[in-house]
Every structure is written in C-alpha cells, then in structure tokens.
C-alpha cells in the first residue's frame, strides 16, 4: 500500500493534465490499490476471470459527490459491469469498501462510508449478484488513496471499492 501510494502520487504529479480525465483517475488507483499490474503485463494481458481482469477491464471502484451516496451514471455503468463479471465468475465473493474524503468528521464519515458501500451493494444485488456473496465495510476517511489538498484528490477518495475475496 505504501509503495502503491507513493507510485500513485508520483504518477499523479507527472500526469497532472491527464488526471483531469475521469477515466484515467478512476483506473490508476484501482490498479495500484490492489497491488496488481506490477510485472503482470498490460491491461490486454489480463487473464479473463482474474483479479487483474476485474480491476483493469471491469473497474473495481465507483466515485461519489461530496457528502452524497447517490450512484451517478458512470458509477452505475461500472457496477453493471461488475455484476456481469461476477455472474461469469461465481467462485468469487466480494467485500465492498466504503470510503469518504477527509473533509468531514471521523464518526460521520464512518457512517457515510457504510452508506456508500450499501448503495453499491444494493445496486449489485439488483443486478443479480446474490446478497450473501457481498460483504460491506466502511473505512470512513481513514484510508485515502489520493493525498493532495484539492477536490481532484478528495473526489478519488469518495469511493466504494469492490474487493475480490476468494478464487481466481
């Protein structure tokens, strides 16, 4: 995680302009959060059904507006892809981690993260993923992936991350 964060920070700094592209923002932390991609070839090389496939080709996380738990169109698209992928690979169970940015108080953010995880879980269930395959946990604001003092970073921290638990 430490290394991943450092790499991400450096990358974010180098690619300041590119960081404005939402897609790029969304993918970079996904790859690195899960310690994937390193030495495993590019996105195209991911084995179908692997954790890397899920992170790189499906997208493991969705993002939220400030103090919001609503799933926007892009988030719904990503979660829809997750549901399809999980239908293809029933050996996986998942934990949806809810996170908040640092611009809130600690206890409220724990509850807000739980709400975000629940929103993502509900969407996956509505798209056919069995409820007992999905656990949720909230980390509040305790696990940021982007560390600057701007909304470009805070926006990446307001997230629900679907983490694969078994199989693969």
């Amino acid at each position: 995680m430490t290394t991943a964060t450092r790499i991400f920070s450096r990358r974010a700094a180098l690619a300041l302009g590119l960081a404005l592209l939402a897609a790029a923002c969304a993918k970079s932390p996904s790859e690195l959060d899960n310690q994937l991609g390193a030495g495993a070839g590019g996105a195209g090389a991911a084995t179908p059904g692997s954790a890397q496939d899920f992170v790189v080709n499906v997208g493991d996380r969705v993002f939220f507006d400030t103090d919001s738990t609503s799933l926007n169109t892009e988030a719904q698209t990503v979660l829809g892809r997750q549901a399809q992928w999980l239908a293809l690979y029933p050996r996986y169970t998942v934990t949806v981690e809810g996170h908040a940015d640092e611009r809130g108080t600690r206890e409220y953010n724990l509850a807000l993260g739980a709400r975000r995880a629940k929103a993502a879980q509900d969407f996956l269930v509505a798209r056919g993923v069995t409820a007992n395959r999905i656990k949720t946990i909230s980390y509040g604001k305790e696990r940021p992936v982007a560390l600057c003092d701007q909304d470009s970073c805070w926006a990446q921290n307001r997230r629900a991350v679907t983490v694969l638990n078994t199989g693969g």
Binding site: M1, T2, T5, R6, S9, E142, R143, P144, V145, L147
Partner: peptide, 9 residues
C-alpha cells in the same frame, strides 16, 4: 505515524 496513505494508528 507513517505516511498519510498508510497511517499506523
């Protein structure tokens, strides 16, 4: 302690 992205509490 430790870096912000991986704080030990």
């Amino acid at each position: 302690s430790g870096p912000k992205g991986n704080r030990v509490k």
